[in-house]
Amino acid sequence: MVIIQIADLVVTAFPNGMAHYAIGGMIIGVGVVLIYLTTGHIVGASTGLETTISYYSKLKWFQQEEFISSRDWRTVFIVGIIIGAASYTMVLGIGQWVTEVQWWRLLIGGVLVGVGTRLGKGCTSGHGICGLASISPASLVNVVIFLGIAIIVAHLTELVGVIP
């Protein structure tokens, strides 16, 4: 009986299965470790976003030594992500997919994500994967906050009838 109840719970919590999530997550981890073991660099997508700005912005903030010295590999990392995801869909012949989330949500959400991840010193990859892997208190606090707030906001969005 208990086993059936657990099985029911798993089906309810993971209606689309668990394997592709766990395997995909571990592949992401392998990518992080590959870069780490060869270069000692710890990746983070939002830092890459910011250092790329140093190529053209004259603001002193973006011309920090730390940004300039890491911008090349950080930009290459982002290009790798794009080509990696593109290769996967092409090799498997999955075909193009386009989101139904409204453009204004992507834009407004994007601006807040840009500000928040830079002020907070990391995002889902930097704090969520690499920071948690480092057992960093700052990352743990940041992740708990952004997860909690995002869950509340996503429910509110659903509540006011904005779908998907």
Partner: peptide, 30 residues
């Protein structure tokens, strides 16, 4: 770190996107 987490959380909740995933999403033709 805390205020940034709040702002990021609001943006993530509105849009469902974060930086790394957005680049990968571009890769799959979105």
């Amino acid at each position: 770190v805390m205020v940034g987490g709040v702002i990021f959380g609001i943006g993530w909740g509105i849009s469902g996107i974060c930086p790394g995933a957005a680049f990968a999403s571009l890769g799959i033709g979105n």
